[in-house]
């Protein structure tokens, strides 16, 4: 899901950076301080989970889980993903400073879209409805992310069309896997700790920070 440094054109970088900054600013303003440790810790869990590789026939895919991040974090997915990508950039040189905005937007915007579309449905009491919307959430987040990645490439340079098509095609099997895994994780959390799914809707705890 990362676009590396030096590939995108200036207008795309600037637009991506501005939109990511706007999303993050809105999320930070909305987020109460008592949620900061929670957002950071959940972000750590996603960071670690992204190293899990699932076998798919002879190949394997790694987990992205940005749909689930949207469900669990709401708008806070913006700062969480921004910081996680910043860390990856410095630790492993995946992505970097100039592409931070575009990469954050490509992952966090689908997360927030899924939160708005499926947040309430996933939490609902109907098991079937909850499971199917969790699947849709996992799959849609990857599809949107892939589409935005392809568009960032094509808007930078029309000749990237071939590369963008390959990148988008590679997202299709991941979509199905992510849908299934998101559905199973949500099922597990509903059984074990349903409060976790309520976190983005929780009222701030009483404190004067």
């Amino acid at each position: 899901m990362h676009i590396s440094e030096g590939v995108l054109s200036a207008p795309v970088l600037v637009a991506g950076g501005a939109l990511a900054a706007a999303g993050t600013a809105y999320a930070v303003k909305k987020m109460d301080y008592d949620r900061v440790p929670q957002v950071a810790l959940v972000s750590c869990a996603f960071f670690v989970a992204s190293f899990i590789h699932l076998p798919v026939g002879p190949a394997s895919v790694h987990l992205v889980l940005n749909g689930l991040a949207g469900i669990l974090l709401g708008w806070a997915a913006f700062p969480a993903i921004l910081v996680a990508l910043f860390l990856q950039g410095i630790l492993f040189q995946f992505g970097g400073l100039t592409t931070l905005g575009v990469n954050t937007l490509n992952m966090a915007l689908p997360a927030v879209v899924c939160y708005i579309l499926f947040g309430r449905l996933v939490r609902g009491p109907d098991t079937l409805l909850s499971a199917s919307s969790a699947f849709a959430c996992g799959a849609l987040a990857v599809l949107l992310g892939g589409l935005m990645l392809a568009l960032s490439l094509v808007w930078s340079e029309e000749s990237f069309l071939a590369v963008a098509k390959v990148a988008l095609l590679a997202h299709l099997p991941v979509m199905v896997i992510e849908g299934i895994i998101t559905m199973l994780i949500v099922g597990f959390l509903k059984k074990v700790k349903p409060e976790l799914l309520e976190a983005p809707y929780a009222r701030p705890q009483s404190s004067n920070l």
Binding site: Q38, L41, V48, L184, I185, F188, L196
Partner: peptide
């Protein structure tokens, strides 16, 4: 490549999220 594998990994991620959530409460 089977449902058992995916289910096991999903529960593992679920456990990770659970411990992150509980740790966050303790930290705060």
């Amino acid at each position: 490549t089977n449902l058992h594998t995916y289910k096991s990994y999903a529960h593992m991620v679920g456990m990770l999220l659970l411990s992150s959530y509980e740790r966050a409460e303790a930290v705060y």
